[in-house]
């Protein structure tokens, strides 16, 4: 489930495959948009590749241990442009 705010998208619980296109559209419309994954427990692989390709700034990593380690491995911190 994704909640979009002005400059921040909050990903919570399980983010399904249908939301990948919404997420992509939002990231294209908000190149500076930040992501809050703290309440997220699983994202579908399609969302994962959206994040890997678009490389948005991650404001908060998931609290979920397993997902956090995978997200950190997939999206190593980048210097914000």
């Amino acid at each position: 489930m994704i909640t979009f705010e002005a400059q921040c998208a909050r990903l919570a619980e399980v983010v399904g495959i249908e939301e990948a296109s919404t997420l992509l559209d939002w990231l294209q419309a908000h190149p500076q948009g930040q992501l809050d994954l703290s309440d997220c427990t699983h994202i579908h692989a399609a969302n994962l590749q959206v994040l890997m390709v678009k490389r948005p700034t991650i404001a908060a990593l998931p609290n979920h241990d397993g997902l956090r380690s995978w997200i950190s491995a997939a999206l190593p911190p980048q210097v914000a442009a």
């Binding site: 296109s21 692989a45 590749q49």
Partner: peptide, 11 residues
């Protein structure tokens, strides 16, 4: 790529 398709898995 504006036409990039998120539903083609490239992982």
């Amino acid at each position: 790529d504006p036409l990039w398709d998120p539903y083609q898995c490239g992982l």
